[in-house]
């Protein structure tokens, strides 16, 4: 797969753009967190596209954001489990 560029993305309809970004992000996130990959990718897709493109180019920034998403998910799930 050739790297996704801003111009490639810009030429796609908005809905397709998120799909394209998700298809590229998912395998990278899956390598880090297989069990949560779908959820984390969904959370990241809410970030604006320019930042997502940057993350595709910078493994470090992607890694930071994925860890943040895992922390948010764990805190969220902890809230669900905690006795009310």
């Amino acid at each position: 797969q050739e790297p996704l560029t801003a111009s490639m993305l810009a030429s796609a309809p908005l809905q397709e753009q998120k799909q394209m970004l998700g298809e590229r992000l998912y395998p990278l996130i899956h390598a880090m967190h297989p069990a949560l990959a779908g959820k984390i990718t969904g959370m990241l897709l809410e970030i604006d596209n320019s930042e997502l493109l940057h993350m595709l180019e910078s493994p470090e920034s992607l890694h930071t954001k994925v860890e943040e998403a895992v922390a948010v998910l764990q805190a969220h799930q902890a809230k669900d489990i905690s006795p009310k």
């Binding site: 395998p27 969904g42 959370m43 897709l45 943040e68 998403a69």
Partner: peptide
């Protein structure tokens, strides 16, 4: 630092229309 990520976000499934 409060994260802006949404834990309720829709799950992404590769190959499925997002």
């Amino acid at each position: 630092r409060k994260s802006s990520l949404n834990p309720e976000a829709k799950e992404f499934v590769p190959g499925v229309k997002y």
